[in-house]
């Protein structure tokens, strides 16, 4: 959150400004009161660890939304990342490093395909990435003969450590997600590229006239996002020692939600990295907290959906009030 509290803010004003934060804390307290396990260090780090892959995908989504588009194929890039890496190890006997490179290449293939559609053919990002989604899903089905997982039990230790290892006691996946978050923050919020990306996202024609090479930026962004999501795929594959086709889809809606919760928290409604982090943590916390409440699966799912709608509505309403 980049809002600053001015001296004369009344209580109502504060609620308006920090409405979402208050709800965030309210849920936190509620979950903690319901089940003390929630507050235990192990569980809190579970939330963070469990949110790592979503965080990575949501970062990519933030970048694309900042360019004024949307990417429905982030899940495909994730799947491709996992598939390329697993196949590289299993069928080509590559070591962990080669496998990771292969995975990243897999993600970039998706990114390149998207940028051909969006920049080369001039298709709107929504429809372009939707067709990438269709095509990518189909390719996975064809390749796996209908969608069966490809498991690789004898995965190199180094690769598995991506999900299971730790660096100075901190889980590797959390470190990777944190590192990517910092990089994305610097690019999008602090660098001159970020300024150009935001400018073209807000008013493309003005960015063109100002001499910004929007096509070059768009192509780069889609490829970068493809690679980023592939990192998520690597972690997911390392975690379960297999590639499960079409598993990336489950991150799509949460990633979009996190980005827009984050954008709504920004004083001028821009998609931004800190906001996305907050959105991801909120979603992760709610999922975890509901789990600990011991509800049945369906009820938990429904509650999660309803909380998602309410949180988004609140964040957007809060932004609207702040603007007027």
């Amino acid at each position: 959150m980049t809002t600053t509290l001015t001296g004369s803010a009344s209580v109502g004003n504060a609620i308006m400004r920090f409405g979402f934060l208050i709800v965030f804390l309210a849920f936190f307290v509620l979950f903690a009161a319901w089940n003390p396990v929630f507050l235990q260090g192990g569980n809190l780090s579970n939330i963070i660890e469990g949110s790592a892959v979503l965080m990575i995908v949501a970062l990519g989504m933030t970048l694309i939304v900042a360019t004024g588009g949307i990417d429905l194929s982030v899940g495909i890039a994730l799947d491709f990342g996992a598939a390329f890496a697993v196949v590289a190890m299993k069928s080509y006997g590559m070591d962990w490093f080669g496998a990771m490179c292969a995975g990243l290449i897999g993600g970039s293939v998706v990114g390149i395909f998207n940028s051909v559609l969006v920049v080369g053919l001039g298709i709107s990002p929504f429809l372009a990435t939707l067709s990438t989604f269709f095509i990518g899903s189909s390719v996975q089905r064809i390749f796996t003969n209908g969608g069966g997982p490809i498991s690789h039990r004898r995965m190199p230790e180094e690769f598995r450590n991506l999900a299971l290892g730790d660096i100075y006691g901190i889980p590797t996946e959390a470190v990777v997600a944190f590192g990517l978050t910092v990089i994305y923050f610097l690019i999008l919020e602090r660098s001159i590229w970020g300024r150009r990306i935001h400018a073209m996202g807000m008013q493309r024609s003005a960015a063109i006239v100002a001499g910004i090479r929007v096509n070059r930026i768009l192509i780069t962004c889609y490829v970068v996002v493809g690679v980023t999501c592939a990192v998520g795929g690597l972690i997911a594959a390392a975690n379960i020692r297999m590639f499960t086709p079409l598993s990336g889809f489950s991150y799509l809606l949460d990633a979009i939600a996190a980005v827009f919760i984050g954008a709504a928290l920004h004083p001028r409604g821009r998609p931004n990295v800190p906001g996305t982090v907050l959105g991801v943590l909120f979603l992760g916390m709610v999922a975890n907290g509901l789990n600990l409440m011991g509800l049945n699966f369906n009820t938990k799912d429904a509650l999660q959906g309803i909380i998602l709608v309410s949180a988004l509505a609140l964040a957007v309403a809060q932004q609207k009030m702040r603007r007027s």
Partner: peptide, 8 residues
């Protein structure tokens, strides 16, 4: 539209 990014 073309001269300025108005929200900036």
């Amino acid at each position: 539209n073309a001269g300025l990014v108005l929200p900036m």
